[in-house]
C-alpha cells in the first residue's frame, strides 16, 4: 500500500517540478524586455568600452606630436613573450653629448597577451592601453605596429 501511494506521489512531485521548470522558461518567453543580446555591428556607435579596457598597447602623442618614450627598453625587458622591440638611435644632443632617442618602437599585437607589464613598468608612462578591439585582419603583418608616429619626438620636459 505504501508503495502504491509512493507511485502516485512520485508522479505528482515529478510533474510539479517539471511545471516549475517550465514556468521559468515560460516567464522569459513572455518577457522580451529581458533579452540580453547585444546587436554588435549595429551598436558600434553607442558601444563604449571601459576606460581601462586592454584593447592594444598604444603610445599616446600630444598635439605637437610629442611622445614620452625615452627608448630605455624596460618594456622590452619586461615583456614575457617578446611582443615589443625597441630600436633606439643615438643623435647629437644640444650640449654636444650623444643622446639616446627612440627610432622605432615595434609592437607585435599578434603575440601580445595583455599582461600589462609594459604599461605598468614604463618609468615615463609613455605607453597606455587603447580601446580599439577590432583587430581582425587578413594579413598578419598588419598586426606588427610601430607605436611612435613618424616625425614625432620626445617631450622636452622628459628629455
Amino acid at each position: 500500500m505504501k508503495e502504491f501511494f509512493k507511485y502516485f506521489a512520485d508522479i505528482f512531485t515529478g510533474v510539479r517540478s517539471l511545471l516549475i521548470g517550465m514556468s521559468v522558461t515560460g516567464k522569459y518567453f513572455f518577457s522580451p524586455g529581458q533579452i540580453v543580446t547585444q546587436q554588435y555591428p549595429e551598436n558600434r556607435k553607442t558601444l563604449k568600452m571601459y576606460d581601462r579596457f586592454k584593447g592594444e598597447v598604444i603610445m599616446p602623442h600630444d598635439e605637437n606630436n610629442h611622445h614620452r618614450c625615452t627608448g630605455c627598453a624596460i618594456c622590452e625587458l619586461n615583456c614575457p613573450n617578446g611582443s615589443i622591440e625597441v630600436i633606439s638611435a643615438r643623435i647629437d644632443g644640444p650640449d654636444g653629448k650623444k643622446v639616446r632617442i627612440i627610432d622605432q618602437h615595434i609592437y607585435h599585437l599578434g603575440m601580445c597577451t595583455f599582461c600589462s607589464l609594459c604599461v605598468k613598468t614604463c618609468p615615463e608612462n609613455a605607453l597606455a592601453f587603447g580601446q580599439e578591439f577590432e583587430h581582425a585582419v587578413f594579413d598578419r603583418t598588419v598586426l606588427t605596429k610601430i607605436l611612435n608616429q613618424p616625425g614625432s619626438s620626445i617631450l622636452k620636459e622628459i628629455a
Binding site: 522558461t25 515560460g26 522569459y28 518567453f29 522580451p32 529581458q34 533579452i35 540580453v36 543580446t37 546587436q39
Partner: peptide, 13 residues
C-alpha cells in the same frame, strides 16, 4: 525564435 526568446536572445534576425 521560440528557443531564443526562452533563452533571453533575439534569435535569427
Amino acid at each position: 525564435k521560440v528557443c531564443a526568446f526562452m533563452q533571453n536572445r533575439v534569435g535569427p534576425n
